[in-house]
Simulated scan of single mutants.
Amino acid sequence: MPKILGSSLAEHRERTRSALFAALSHLMGERGFDAVSLADIAAEAGIGRTAVYNHFPDKESLLLAFIEHETSTYVRALDASLAEVDDPVGQLRVYVRQQLQLERSYHFAPGPDLREVVSREAAMHLRAHVGQVEALLRKILTRAIEAGDIPAQHVDAVVQLVHACLSGRRVPRAEPERSEFIAATELFVLRAVGAPAAWPVRAAEVA
């Protein structure tokens, strides 16, 4: 009988899932999802291979559960940060910085793009999780347009363009390079959507 982690079956299940998520994240960061087996993940997590099947039938199911957990946690934290800012342009600044500071192993993993190595159904699930984050950006841009803070524009297209700018970027870890990189990207995005606050004030405007 496998050892129970925690004081109850519910706690055991949660701890086991957390251990598997951590192992998957670590191994994907080293090798890429396609080069990792469920047995590798179980060994890394210190969990018997057969016990893993009590939680996930295959590594694709584990991946989807991991991404759902990571995305939900991130969206809640981002939503809370955005709620502290009233100004839509200020919210966009927060959004850009939070996206760049986020370390997502399933975006930075070596090897092929995840959508190329999972089933079509799984790829659709991956896209749905990205949609949760995109919905927040869409709301920010819509508010900014309605407030007259940025010009009217095709919101759906701009959401894709902003995410293309932010996704998969390797932000420097050392300072001051890290802060400079984030500030430059923030300025680029604000200028791209036409936020007046992003443009430097000329001497003639303050004379």
Rank of each mutant, 00 (worst) to 15 (best):
E146S: 15
V117W: 01
S61K: 11
R17A: 13
R170A: 09
A183Y: 01
A203Y: 09
V52L: 10
P57T: 12
A35G: 03
L100Y: 02
L114F: 04
G6V: 13
G194H: 06
P112C: 09
L38T: 03
E116R: 13
E14K: 15
Y53T: 08
E146H: 15
Y53F: 15
R104K: 08
P200F: 05
H69F: 13
Y53E: 12
R138Q: 08
P176E: 14
A43K: 13
P151F: 04
Q160P: 00
A123E: 04
L5P: 00
E186W: 01
Q132H: 09
P196K: 14
S179V: 06
V36G: 01
R49Y: 11
S119R: 07
E205S: 14
E30R: 15
I145G: 04
E103V: 12
D34G: 05
L161M: 11
D149V: 05
I182Q: 05
E186H: 07
A195G: 07
A174N: 11
L114A: 01
S179R: 14
R170T: 07
V94Q: 01
A35R: 12
E175T: 09
E60T: 13
Q132T: 08
L64Y: 05
A197I: 10
V117P: 01
E84F: 04
L92R: 01
D87L: 02
N54V: 11
R31W: 07
A43D: 13
N54R: 15
V75N: 06
A203M: 09
D58G: 07
L64W: 05
R143C: 05
V117G: 02
V193C: 06
A51P: 02
G131Y: 03
Q91C: 06
A80R: 13
E146A: 15
G194Y: 04
A19Y: 00
R76S: 13
E30F: 03
Q101I: 02
S8F: 07
A144L: 06
L64N: 05
K3Y: 11
R191Q: 15
G90W: 00
A135K: 11
A42I: 05
I67R: 02
D58I: 07
Q132S: 11
